[in-house]
Amino acid sequence: MGHLILRVTIKLLFAPIILFALYVQFHGDYGPGGGFQAGVTLAAAFILHALGFGLDRCQKVIPPGWLPVGMALGVLIYAGTGIYTMLLGGNFLDYDVIQPDSHHHAGQHIGIIVVELGVGLAVAATMLQIFYAFAAREPEPMDDAW
């Protein structure tokens, strides 16, 4: 079996990358990072997996059909937060109305976390979607050397 070393390394790295993505996602309030970076990192983990073990196996874990749903859900979570605040009587994306009585701006915190989750989900799904879309295409035969 070829590339044993690579495969082992990829397996070793896979979990830390995902863990790191989650760290970035939820640590965004305090340090650098946020949904966008987390989403990309998460997608990168799966891309690495697909590179090592083939697209088919990756697609078994995350079927391509899920990705549009993930993308849509991400945007909907974000926009839905805004609509929720509207329904509560505030302006669009006015998180303060989520917890109007809190002195610690709990509403803002909740809002930011939810919104960042939406971003993360949307970005991760989109990145994977793009990767799937590209990688799944058979290259046309080449005649020029490079």
């Binding site: 590339h3 070393i5 690579l6 390394t9 790295l13 830390p16």
Partner: peptide, 17 residues
């Protein structure tokens, strides 16, 4: 330490491959 560990893991593998 984490960076150290990852570097230990990835860069020889990259060079190897």
């Amino acid at each position: 330490v984490l960076i150290f560990l990852f570097m230990m893991m990835t860069s020889p593998v990259a060079t190897h491959s």
